[in-house]
Write a protein that binds this DNA or RNA. Structure first.
Lengths: 229, 229
DNA sequence: CGTTCGATTGAGGAAGATCAATTAATGTGG
DNA sequence: CCACATTAATTGATCTTCCTCAATCGAACG
């Protein structure tokens, strides 16, 4: 899988000749409301998508890792629907949507990469909804950590220790709970030995055994009624 | 907008020569886990996507209306990620993904229609997450009704009276609350005169003034902390 | 006309929010 | 490099929202 993502990135880099930009934590990649022109590909680093409603509600709607595309949300109505913000040093490639279409005609793999990435984005968004709707707070945090670790694993990175580049407030916002609940959940997970904290600072989370963390989630399902037919 | 959707459907019908199938409430369009081959286009009727986890959690992840495409979620890993179930009598078109790609080469509009639809799906999924994460139960139900009405409006249909083809349990599942909370929320909305119930049966909801319903949501925002940078 | 399924409503309880105080990490200017 | 200021995180006490359990009512259907 790590191979897959690197290979895809190499292909895209060669075929699309994207504009490359180095970003640092906090840098804006695009802003909600801006005219849609480019799609972005995250070559390295981590990104968050933050959506803001007219009535002032703010939501961290998704996270992106190496190989992910950004900006789909702007395609339909010609304007991006959220802010894309770097959470870390990284490199972002940008490609005009039109260029992408042109290249796709001679290189179908590029189009397939786009579709695969959009499909994954949809699947991930649904997983988020599932998590928020069906899991109690502690399990939601555990599930969040598992998903982060999975994302790293897909990219061939270590998953026994992950560095969350987010505050408790951001995590809570993304998971639909308060920062205090996030903190309590993490303390609980640490007390139950399914996660650990690194020596310095509590933003580094150790996951010695993903299976145990996964089992923790299963143990904390609140008996939900079936929907069925 | 209604024009747009009809026009797009006509184009797709002509260009793709899809297989057409009439479905009735409860009919399965595709099943989670099935091999991905086709994309589906909803020519009429309403559809729900239901996702099921390994540990038995069930989630109504999204709803689809006339003109929406179904099946994107299967593109990335070759298997559909949810069940697609008709909630009403309707007609579903199916098109092999490969056919779609072939036609796209001679008719770029088709590809653009696909991308637009995927982009909208992503935007809608994010709206769902936003709603679940930032709104209290009553407001969530109100927002749900507003979104449904908007979907109808986009298709040129009446929005002052909508027929929910869902039980309270299904609505609750989709919105992350119990069926009792949905019932109480609807009673509350009716008491506050922002919705009404039709003479017969309580599945028909009248929305005399969408603005008033929208204002109700705004009045019931729980003061949330800002995320900012 | 009774049976079944869905919806409503009430009472009590629990999960998580809110408020508040403390501690830990991070950053800044001297 | 240190004292101080600032921001983030933890933890506790209380309160609110929503869930759970239960009874009743209504609608649909054989």
């Amino acid at each position: 899988m790590s191979r897959r993502i690197s290979d895809t990135l190499r292909l895209l880099g060669e075929q699309l000749d994207p504009k490359r930009r180095v970003v640092r934590a906090g840098d804006l990649i695009y802003r909600a409301g801006e005219a849609f022109d480019n799609l972005y590909i995250l070559n390295s680093g981590i990104c968050k998508m933050v959506s803001l409603t007219a009535d002032g509600r703010e939501q961290l709607v998704s996270l992106s890792f190496r190989g992910d595309w950004l900006g789909f949300d702007g395609l339909a109505d010609g304007h991006y629907g959220a802010d894309a913000i770097a959470m870390d040093t990284g490199e972002v490639w940008s490609v005009p949507y039109q260029t992408l279409l042109d290249v796709s005609k001679v290189c179908p793999e590029v189009l397939h990469a786009l579709h695969t990435s959009m499909s994954k984005a949809i699947a991930r968004d649904r997983d988020s909804l599932m998590s928020v709707c069906t899991l109690p707070a502690v399990a939601r945090v555990a599930d969040f950590l598992l998903n982060w670790a999975d994302s790293l694993a897909d990219r061939g990175m270590r998953t026994d220790q992950i560095t969350l580049r987010m505050t408790r407030a951001e995590i809570g916002n993304h998971l639909g709970m308060t920062l205090e609940s996030v903190s309590r959940a993490l303390s609980r997970l640490a007390r139950d030995q399914v996660i650990g904290f690194a020596t310095q600072g509590r933003r580094d989370v150790q996951i010695p055994d993903a299976g145990a963390l996964s089992a923790f989630v299963r143990r904390h399902l609140s008996a939900a009624p079936a929907l069925l037919q």
